[in-house]
Design a protein around this nucleic acid. Structure first.
Lengths: 204, 204
DNA sequence: GGCGGGCGGTGACTTTTGTCATGGCATGTG
DNA sequence: CACATGCCATGACAAAAGTCACCGCCCGCC
């Protein structure tokens, strides 16, 4: 075997982060060189510690793990990215691949998968749940335009049309048009169902 | 020191469950005697393995950890309950205490807290985050009636009044009355904000 | 026994949503 | 160039959602 594998761990839940760090630390060939709980710290810490692989949660405070992955691939091409997320949303997988990730793991599987996935990624393999890959392909690409996503995202917590219009700097009537379009494209009956569907698919 | 502490671990996320189990297993005085990923398995497993303490997540498939806690206290009074949850909602804490839990931990803090909390609970202490306790007290009790909760819960994913009425077996007009009442009590502007507020407070 | 509260319901009313047709303006691309 | 597509907007209309007053029933409580 070659050298030790240096890994950066980005995960917002303290207990999860600590547990994973301790766990991976038990492996002889793995060393945690950085732990962060915020998306904005990923790149700086990576530049400082030069990990071989970054283990990124998607939903983080600050920058999303997907955005961080893209930056990482650009600024530190030698660092592989392994996405580790709670939600196996098709759109997340797709975006992860587009961002240059080498693997995509959901937090459901057994812990043993994790160290194994790290080694496989470092060996040049791509690690993706086959069932999830199939779902991502069958679901097709994101049908929503940028504005439709913006408007839908602004509608998540029950905001009124006026609220959304103010947030996105659009006319209220225009907002309703975009909402209507999003509802149509998601084949739902109202804005809340549209939000749910978009979230489910990782289109937000 | 006395005997080893037998613990039952209920947590739905496989990786989290595995990591915690491995972690706690490293402690000399702690032994995991049962691991479950489903709320309905908690009581049967507890009856079979007779743990000293049950470590319960709240949001589980099947029965909620809070419901399981109440049953556990009744059927197995010698078994302490320590709630371990992602969300430090005031209402959750309140319900946990009413269900007879001895402790309430959020998954944010450091991992070291966990083993420490287990030992403290077994020593007869109550383990509760002081800040959270204050929030729970200042937030006051759940103002929603049973039916208001039912209707609100049925409204979570954008269901129409007709859908809710069908789900809850009520007249559509009555459903709208309950929704209106819930919106009033939560001081919000529409059903989605009411749902959010209710969730935030752990009133669902 | 009167009173408050939760429960279930109706009808009438206003406001908000959702739909649709239609317009203009900017991009591209065959 | 014509055409499609995304963007922003308006106005009109139908369908939901939300509000309010009011009804009766039951239960617990002072």
């Amino acid at each position: 075997m070659s050298r030790v594998i240096n890994v950066l761990l980005a995960e917002d839940q303290g207990m999860m982060r600590g547990a994973l760090a301790l766990l991976l630390g038990l492996e002889d060939d793995i060393e945690i060189v950085a732990q962060v709980g915020n998306g904005d710290e990923i790149l700086p810490q990576a530049l400082a510690t030069r990990p071989d692989i970054a283990l990124l949660d998607i939903e983080l405070p600050g920058r999303s793990g997907l955005d961080a992955a893209a930056e990482l691939r650009e600024r530190l091409p030698d660092c592989r990215v392994l996405i580790l997320t709670t939600f196996g949303r098709p759109g997340y997988l797709r975006r992860a691949m587009e961002a240059g990730a080498s693997g995509f793991l959901v937090k459901d599987g057994p812990v043993e998968e994790l160290a194994a996935a790290i080694r496989r990624v470092l060996a040049g393999e791509r690690v993706i749940d086959p069932a999830l890959a199939a779902a991502a392909l069958s679901a097709g690409p994101n049908p929503l335009t940028q504005r439709e996503r913006d408007v839908l995202a602004a509608a998540v917590d029950g905001a009124t049309v006026a609220d959304i219009a103010a947030k996105v700097h659009l006319s209220p009537a225009t907002v309703r048009n975009y909402l209507s379009a999003a509802i149509g494209k998601t084949a739902t009956r109202n804005r809340m169902e549209a939000v749910r569907a978009a979230r489910q698919n990782g289109w937000l």
